[in-house]
Design a protein around this nucleic acid. Structure first.
Lengths: 246, 246
DNA sequence: GAGTGGTCTAGACCACTGC
DNA sequence: CAGTGGTCTAGACCACTCG
C-alpha cells in the first residue's frame, strides 16, 4: 500500500492529501475542464494505488473548498462559475427589500498598461509588466449599482478585448474560465466606506460625496496564484453587502 | 446496529446526522460546557450503539462548523469564544497598514426596554417583550473605531448590567457564554455605507456626514435561535473590514 | 504506557442516475 | 441493469499528550 507516496517527503502529509494534490494538479493543468466529470473514485483509487476511502477523503476536502461538486449517481464534476449556484459566491450584494433582481454588466473601457508598484504587488508581477485594465458598470434592474476597475495580468489575459466583454453571456469569471482557462478559487476582500468622487458619482447616479462601499478584491487561482485585482464602488442606497460569519 | 436510530423518522437522515443531533443536544442543554472535553469517540460510539467511524463523521461536521475543536492526543472540546483564535471570527476589522492592535471595549449605556416591531422580528420575540439595549464603544490602540448598539432578549439576559460589562475581561461573547450559557454559533451581517450622524460622529471623532460602515448583525445560537441583534458603525479611516470569499 | 484523535484499508450495502 | 457517489462497519496501525 502507499504506492505512489512520496518516498522522502520533506514535510509530512497524510496519503489523502498527497492524492488531493495529484487531483488538484489535474485540475490546474486542465486535464479535466470546468464542468466536466473527473474519473470515478474507484478509477482514481486504482490509478493512484490507494483505497477508495482515501480517494474519497481527498475529494471530500476538495468539495468542501468548492473546487469540485459531487452528484450522487452521476459523478464528481469540476466546479464552474457557469453554475448558477456559484453566482452569489463572489458578489454578495442583495436588494434591501429582499427578492432577486436581474443583473447586467456593461464594459466601459478595456486598455493595456504597465503595472505600477501597487498592481504589481497585488498581482505578483514586476513593475511595468504588461497588464490589462477594465472598467465596467454593473446594474440591477436597470439601475447602476457597482462601478468596477479590474486589473489583470497581461501575460494571461493578453487576448481580452472590450468586444469579448460586451458580447459574452454570463459572468466575468465564466468568461475567464471558458476563454482563458483560469478559474477563480477564492478571493480576499477589504471593505471600507468612502465618499463618492465626481466620476463615480456620475456613473452610479448619486450625489458627489455621498457614502459608497469601497470593495477591494484580490482573486486567486490554483496554487494561491493571484490573478485579478479589482476595486469596486458599491452604491448601497437600495442594496447591501451580506456576509455570513460561521 | 442502528440502535438509537429514530424508528419512524419523518424526514430521512443518515445515522451520523442523528448522532450529530444527539451530541448537539448535549451542547445545547449544557451537558458539556464551553471549553470542556466531550466524551471520546469510543465512548460516544458505545453510548449510541454505533461504530466509531460514524461518531467520527458526526464530529467531523461539527468541527467544520466550529462547534467543537479536536486536539490530537487530548480529546474533543466544546468551542469557546475565550479561545483567542475565535476573536477575529466575529470582528473582521484590521488596521489598514496591517499588524495587530490592542482593542478595548467601553460600555456607555445598558437599559431595559420593550421590543419594537423591528427588534421583535429580528430576535424572534413578540412586540413589547422585554429586551435589553446596550451601547458601547470599541477602540483600537486607544482610538474609537466602532460604535455598537446591541439588542438582547430580556428573557435570556435579564441579569445583565453595565457593571458586568465594564468589569468583564474578554469579549462580549465570552461573557454571554460564561455568565448566561449562551454560545453564539453563527451570524449574518448586512453591510452598507452611511453618512455619520451627529451622535456617532462625536463618538467616533469624525466629521458629521463622513462615510461610515453600517454593519447590522443577527447572531444565532443552537437550533438557529436568534439571540442578538446589533448595529455597528465602523470608522474605516484607518481600518478595513476583511472578508474571504471561498 | 494508557488514552486520545488521525489515517488507511476492505468490504458490505444503500440511493440515485441513466441507459 | 450497471455505474456512480453515500453510508456504515470493523479492525489495524500511527501520532500525539500526559502522567
Amino acid at each position: 500500500m502507499n504506492a505512489t507516496a512520496n518516498p522522502a517527503a520533506p514535510t509530512f502529509s497524510p496519503l489523502y492529501r498527497q492524492i488531493k494534490a495529484l487531483i488538484l494538479q489535474g485540475l490546474a493543468t486542465g486535464e479535466w475542464r470546468s464542468g466536466e466529470a473527473i474519473p470515478s473514485e474507484g478509477e482514481l483509487a486504482v490509478r493512484f494505488g490507494v483505497s477508495q476511502g482515501t480517494v474519497r477523503k481527498a475529494i471530500d476536502e476538495m468539495a468542501a473548498e468548492n473546487l469540485v461538486v459531487r452528484r450522487q449517481g452521476k459523478g464528481t464534476f469540476v466546479a464552474s462559475h457557469d453554475d448558477p449556484r456559484a453566482f452569489f459566491r463572489f458578489l454578495r450584494l442583495v436588494p434591501l427589500g429582499g427578492g432577486i433582481e436581474k443583473s447586467s454588466s456593461v464594459p466601459l473601457e478595456c486598455w493595456r498598461a504597465k503595472a505600477g508598484p501597487e498592481a504589481a504587488r497585488m498581482l505578483g508581477l514586476n513593475v511595468s509588466d504588461p497588464i490589462i485594465i477594465v472598467r465596467r458598470l454593473l446594474s440591477f434592474s436597470g439601475k447602476p449599482v457597482v462601478a468596477d476597475e479590474i486589473y489583470l495580468s497581461g501575460e494571461i489575459f493578453g487576448a481580452l478585448t472590450i468586444e469579448m466583454l460586451r458580447d459574452y453571456e454570463g459572468s466575468l469569471y465564466s468568461l475567464f474560465e471558458s476563454t482563458f482557462g483560469v478559474r477563480m478559487i477564492r478571493a480576499e476582500e477589504r471593505i471600507r466606506a468612502v465618499p463618492a468622487e465626481r466620476s463615480s458619482s456620475e456613473l452610479l447616479g448619486v450625489a458627489e460625496g455621498s457614502p459608497l462601499l469601497s470593495v477591494e478584491r484580490v482573486s486567486y487561482s490554483y496554487g494561491d496564484t493571484p490573478v485579478e485585482w479589482r476595486r469596486g464602488l458599491y452604491s448601497t442606497a437600495e442594496h447591501c453587502y451580506i456576509n455570513n460569519l460561521g
